[in-house]
Amino acid sequence: MAVLAVCNETTDNLGFIGERFDAHNLGPVTTVYREDPAAWPEPTDFDLLVSTGSLWSVTEDERAAALRHEVELYRRALTGAVPILAICYGAHALALALGAPGRPAPQPEAGFVVPDTADPTLVPAGPWLTWHSDLLTVPTGATLLARTPVAPQAWTLGRSMAVQFHAELTPSELASWVARGADWLHEHHIDPHALIAEAEAHAQALRARAHTLFDAFWTRLAQAPEN
Results as ranks from 00 to 15, higher is better:
residue 86 A to S: 10
residue 23 A to C: 03
residue 174 L to P: 09
residue 30 T to E: 10
residue 226 E to T: 05
residue 33 Y to R: 08
residue 85 L to D: 00
residue 195 L to H: 01
residue 26 L to A: 01
residue 110 A to I: 08
residue 141 G to K: 03
residue 143 T to L: 11
residue 156 T to W: 05
residue 10 T to I: 04
residue 58 V to E: 08
residue 125 A to D: 10
residue 37 P to K: 14
residue 12 D to G: 10
residue 10 T to S: 14
residue 90 G to A: 11
residue 1 M to G: 10
residue 15 G to Q: 12
residue 155 W to Q: 06
residue 36 D to G: 03
residue 76 R to C: 02
residue 194 A to H: 13
residue 216 A to L: 02
residue 43 P to N: 06
residue 189 H to C: 04
residue 102 G to E: 06
residue 58 V to C: 13
residue 212 T to H: 06
residue 195 L to E: 02
residue 129 L to H: 13
residue 199 A to E: 04
residue 72 E to D: 11
residue 161 M to I: 01
residue 174 L to S: 11
residue 54 S to I: 15
residue 38 A to M: 11
residue 223 Q to L: 11
residue 200 E to G: 05
residue 9 E to C: 09
residue 35 E to L: 11
residue 220 R to W: 03
residue 80 G to F: 14
residue 71 V to I: 15
residue 133 S to E: 06
residue 98 L to I: 05
residue 159 R to G: 01
residue 77 A to S: 04
residue 158 G to E: 12
residue 67 L to W: 11
residue 66 A to W: 10
residue 216 A to Y: 01
residue 8 N to F: 13
residue 54 S to Q: 14
residue 37 P to G: 09
residue 90 G to H: 07
residue 186 H to E: 12
residue 115 P to A: 07
residue 160 S to H: 05
residue 153 Q to R: 04
residue 105 A to M: 03
residue 136 L to P: 02
residue 22 D to W: 00
residue 197 A to L: 05
residue 33 Y to N: 10
residue 215 D to S: 07
residue 56 W to D: 15
residue 2 A to N: 11
residue 58 V to F: 05
residue 50 V to F: 03
residue 99 G to S: 07
residue 170 T to S: 15
residue 106 P to K: 02
residue 155 W to R: 03
residue 95 A to N: 00
residue 118 A to Q: 14
residue 224 A to T: 13
residue 190 I to M: 09
residue 211 H to C: 04
residue 28 P to A: 12
residue 11 T to V: 11
residue 58 V to R: 09
residue 70 E to Q: 15
residue 116 D to K: 08
residue 88 C to N: 14
residue 209 R to P: 02
residue 225 P to R: 14
residue 194 A to E: 15
residue 178 V to T: 13
residue 135 L to W: 06
residue 76 R to L: 06
residue 99 G to F: 13
residue 62 E to Q: 10
residue 17 I to S: 04
residue 43 P to V: 08
residue 90 G to S: 08
residue 11 T to P: 00
residue 147 R to S: 12
residue 36 D to P: 00
residue 106 P to H: 01
residue 167 A to I: 09
residue 88 C to Q: 12
residue 159 R to Q: 05
residue 77 A to G: 06
residue 87 I to Y: 06
residue 14 L to F: 07
residue 215 D to I: 02
residue 33 Y to E: 10
residue 4 L to P: 07
residue 77 A to K: 06
residue 60 E to Y: 12
residue 93 A to H: 01
residue 59 T to N: 07
residue 104 P to H: 06
residue 51 S to I: 05
residue 114 V to G: 01
residue 158 G to T: 07
residue 46 F to L: 05
residue 215 D to M: 02
residue 24 H to A: 09
residue 195 L to Q: 07
residue 172 S to H: 10
residue 166 H to L: 07
residue 85 L to F: 09
residue 26 L to N: 05
residue 103 R to H: 07
residue 203 A to W: 00
residue 97 A to H: 04
residue 25 N to C: 09
residue 107 Q to S: 07
residue 216 A to I: 02
residue 66 A to G: 12
residue 132 H to V: 05
residue 199 A to G: 11
residue 55 L to V: 06
residue 32 V to S: 10
residue 5 A to Q: 10
residue 193 H to C: 13
residue 61 D to I: 01
residue 195 L to G: 02
residue 10 T to G: 09
residue 221 L to D: 00
residue 178 V to N: 10
residue 129 L to Q: 04
